[in-house]
Design a protein around this nucleic acid. Structure first.
Ligand SMILES: [Mn+2]
Ligand SMILES: [Mn+2]
Ligand SMILES: [Zn+2]
Ligand SMILES: [Zn+2]
Lengths: 140, 140
DNA sequence: TTGTAAATGCAACAAAGTTGCGTTTATTGT
DNA sequence: ACAATAAACGCAACTTTGTTGCATTTACAA
């Protein structure tokens, strides 16, 4: 884990009025270094030996990071949340791609996930959740 | 539960080469009578006293019905599958609406969930999963 | 340096779904 | 109608993912 990401993580956390703890720094640094959206489990596995972190603490840190809009949660059909850092490009709502073979999830920044859709009378639109499924380049 | 739905259910099950059991008839009849996509739990609750059915049997029956394309499963952000009968209109893939207040799920038959989307090079499209979220007419 | 709320760790809990296996039953052939 | 048999079922145990309560520790500011 690059020291760079840890520095950025620390600044981001501080800037959002949270306590700058080793756990939060480690978690956010992992997500900053990661291309894809990853699960709680995968984050746990990427944590260094030197930073043992309770499952619950990890869940709560992720919750806090999502509240502060530093990361976002991605729903999936395998009943597992995936987490991804909010870079400028996809701070807004956006679509995701999930590989049906390796379960890898990426963000599709250029897909319009914000526009309204036709709904039955009396229904009010809030947002859409769009996941494109298929095979990733590695699995093709 | 209308005897009509039970008759239709029985015929559908038989036509697909499965054993026509009380459980399958009861489950499919419930889904035939239902407008919305409902959860395993909700199906369980709608089962008549006269038809006690083990949770596992219910899961396996739903799995079989989905395999035979008599029903389809809907993913949701609450990590709970919902099930809905396949009427002609939405035998194909289609989008869903979920109320963020009462969690009700309906099928949006007129939304194009089949067309391909632009993906990164080397990625292969299979299908999309689209959930529109908002408030239903009752919750508005 | 110290006080304090915020964050953490641990244990227990909960919901949804799965697996293995012995028993029952719907269906087929006689 | 009866018997054979594979399919379906019921039960218990298990798994995975995530949540809650509470006592303890710690970041940070006064
Ligand atoms: Mn994303
Ligand atoms: Mn549907
Ligand atoms: Zn893949
Ligand atoms: Zn509603």
């Amino acid at each position: 884990m690059s020291i760079d990401f840890r520095n950025i993580a620390g600044e981001l956390i501080q800037h959002h009025g949270g306590r700058v703890t080793a756990g939060r720094i480690g978690i956010l640094a992992i997500l900053l270094a990661e291309q894809h959206a990853i699960t709680h489990r995968e984050i746990e596995q990427r944590l260094p030996e030197s930073l043992p972190l309770d499952r619950v603490t990890l869940y709560r840190a992720l919750e806090w990071l999502a509240e502060k809009n530093l990361i976002h949660k991605v729903t999936s059909d395998d009943r597992v949340w995936r987490y991804h850092v909010n870079r400028e490009l996809h701070a807004h709502h956006h679509a995701h791609f999930k590989c049906t073979r390796c379960a890898q999830v990426i963000c599709l920044d250029d897909l319009p996930a914000e526009r309204s859709w036709p709904l039955p009378a009396g229904y009010r639109f809030q947002e859409i959740e769009l996941t494109v499924k298929g095979l990733c380049a590695d699995c093709c």
